[in-house]
Design a protein around this nucleic acid. Structure first.
Lengths: 205, 205
DNA sequence: GTCTATATACTGATAGAC
DNA sequence: GTCTATCAGTATATAGAC
């Protein structure tokens, strides 16, 4: 029950939020199926009855968590869309946001990025089809429309812009990256943007 | 029991190989925990007794599968290392190999790429620490040493070279990429290589 | 609304015949 | 070596008291 508030879980006085956060930590540490509801309620400091009164079932907890985290990402994307105009600024802000989240809320990032939700939330769409990820790709598509980014297939453009950053996130979550991600941001983003920017293509043979 | 042979499972006359392949398909479709051994043996056309005689337990099946697939990737990397000399050729061959595997053995690729092995194989190292992935990154590191690739942090270099390709693989496995991956290879690799190649950096502002 | 104690269902693993 | 039938452990979900 002793949990500190954070950007994604500001209201830690609510016991259902505590329950969700306990579930998040345990899901990330041991996985959804290896975590029993008894462990979740023990870590959250609530009773089984409380949990089942507030959530339909264990799957319902995962669903609530999934929705909560994606809504949080949606808010962050709103802020980015509002603050920046160009694809270059927006995409780089998205990557900084992902890096920031990875450092400050690794459990949340882990749950979003590599939980195989289809295993326990078969009804849910794949994470990549999610509103948040679609919006991230739209930033890229708009960059192509406006001539900021070289014309190319949308799928390739999305992978070029976000692929290496997402790779860094995964490696960092797996403990294979020694320094905080922002250490690598400049080097990564400069090369990434140069590789898609209109009029800069260094065509080779 | 009616399964066709493939590059990774050439000997489909062996019933243990059939069992592994049935497990692979089901693990990929529904996840490790949502798949019971009864389902596996039913799909493979063998009995429970057979399975437990040949594998220590359910976890043992997953371990055998993991080892089998990684050994297969190791062989493919051997071939690449033997056939090509430069980092450029080797890395591009690796990506073509990943694309090829994704198209021809999507279950195997899915199991390798996004199964959270730590959930059911806690002893196993994370997929990214695996020999195969370490060798992939070594191709990049050697490219830096030889001056083929611009000097930069090894982690960044690895993410730049393989990140967008792995992203395409994930999106393709999730059904979000309409065409076979080789369709996108040229466009992707040309930009990717240009973004790390020594002496080609289009430094911006 | 919240709790404890309980039941039901399932699944991984084994025992023992052949 | 291979099979079938069975066991034992566990975890989700509920029932009913407060």
């Amino acid at each position: 029950m002793l949990q500190t508030p954070s950007r994604l879980f500001p209201d830690m006085s609510s016991r259902s939020v505590c329950t969700l956060r306990a579930a998040l930590r345990l899901f990330n540490e041991k996985g959804y199926f290896s975590t029993s509801v008894h462990e979740i309620v023990a870590e959250a400091g609530v009773s089984v009855g409380f949990a089942y009164h507030h959530f339909s079932d264990k799957k319902g907890m995962a669903q609530a968590l999934f929705g909560h985290l994606l809504a949080g990402m949606g808010d962050l994307l709103d802020a980015i869309e509002h603050e920046y105009e160009t694809a270059q600024d927006r995409c780089s802000a998205v990557i900084r946001m992902l890096f920031d989240l990875t450092e400050n809320e690794p459990d949340a990032m882990g749950f979003i990025i590599h939980a195989r939700h289809r295993e326990f939330l078969p009804a849910e769409k794949s994470i990549c089809s999610t509103d948040a990820f679609v919006r991230m790709r739209r930033f890229v598509a708009e960059g192509i429309e406006r001539g900021e980014i070289e014309p190319m297939d949308g799928v390739v453009a999305g992978a070029m812009v976000y692929g290496s950053a997402i790779r860094m996130v995964c490696l960092r979550l797996d403990g294979l990256v020694p320094e905080p991600l922002h250490t690598y941001f400049d080097s990564l983003w400069q090369r990434t943007w140069a590789s898609v920017q209109a009029g800069q293509s260094a065509r080779v043979g």
